[in-house]
């Protein structure tokens, strides 16, 4: 550990070069996962590339067409912006659930995504908001949809030398809204036993024209559930439709049993949370 090297590049290009020349080095945004892993000894990288001093990766820009979210932006700097919460309430709820106030001062959505925990709170919300992840590497730029970014617990799609450079969320069309709910045994400072995010679009006729449902902590990665969305689209989001979406989410779940909950319990709860999150998204969408 004493031989750890610390790099704080100020451009993306410099960061990519450092990643290329320092095999096994880790990218650090907020450090709220990496520094803990180093303290408890589950990570001992030879070098750290701190991306917080790269202006481009600290971008937080809401426009008429999208939200550009740099991977180094802290959770707190997003949750304190009312205009972002008004458009992506579910995503902001999810960010607000990560760790403590102190942790939110440092943690980033990009880090939450790259850390690839199946229970990461923001990932289902990124998925239902059609987030696209821009990845920079020595061979150029590529884009990956949020639902395809992670491959398994602790494993993301970045190859050695690649870096997540931007998360782009298209602006929802009028009549849309999202919501995120998670279940934990206490009210704060815990890791999701189950999470569920839903986004819906409701037309002037009251009929749901588009929906996305994503669930967390019930599979090796956060999961997009098209069958649950299908149960919502074409309905007026009545109780039966919400019930059906919940049943589809339970059906799609393949959780493990651990100290936080049994598989059976998680399968049941993910259905309930999906139904409730859909009801909240509906209420919000009717006002948009």
């Amino acid at each position: 550990m004493d031989s750890l090297q610390y790099f704080a590049p100020t451009t993306l290009q410099e960061a990519v070069q450092l990643l290329e020349t320092n095999s096994g080095c880790r990218i650090m945004a907020g450090g709220t996962d990496l520094i803990v892993q180093m303290h408890i000894g589950t990570a001992s990288p030879p070098a750290i590339v701190d991306i917080k001093k790269i202006p481009e990766l600290n971008k937080l820009q809401l426009s008429d067409s999208d939200l550009l979210l740099g991977p180094a932006v802290s959770g707190a700097s997003i949750t304190e912006q009312a205009d972002i919460a008004a458009i992506y309430p579910g995503l902001v709820e999810a960010i607000d659930l990560i760790g403590s106030t102190q942790v939110q001062g440092r943690c980033s959505v990009g880090g939450n995504l790259c850390n690839a925990s199946p229970a990461a709170d923001t990932v289902p919300s990124l998925i239902v908001n059609n987030a696209v992840c821009e990845i920079h590497g020595a061979s150029g730029v590529r884009e990956v949809a949020a639902e395809s970014f992670n491959l398994g617990p602790g494993k993301n799609c970045l190859s050695e030398g690649e870096i997540l450079s931007l998360i782009r969320l298209p602006k929802p069309v009028p009549g849309s809204a999202d919501a995120y709910l998670r279940f934990i045994p206490r009210t704060e400072m815990d890791i999701a036993v189950v999470g569920a995010a839903v986004s819906v679009t409701i037309g002037g006729d009251g009929v749901c024209s588009a929906a996305r449902v994503a669930i967390g902590a019930v599979a090796p990665t956060a999961l997009l559930v098209p069958e649950a969305a299908k149960a919502l689209v074409g309905t007026d989001l009545n109780d039966q439709a919400l019930e059906n979406a919940g049943a589809a989410a339970s059906q799609a779940a393949s959780p493990i049993s651990d100290k936080r909950g049994t598989a059976e319990y998680r399968i049941k709860v993910v259905g309930v949370l999906t139904r409730r999150a859909a009801a909240i998204a509906k209420q919000r969408a009717l006002q948009n």
């Binding site: 303290h39 707190a76 102190q102 440092r106």
Partner: peptide
């Protein structure tokens, strides 16, 4: 490990756990 808050400080006017800052 970022759990207890005893190490809270302000870093550039933002509340953080100083044990999770290098």
């Amino acid at each position: 490990t970022g759990d207890c808050g005893a190490c809270s400080v302000m870093l550039d006017d933002r509340l953080v756990c100083s044990c999770l800052v290098l």
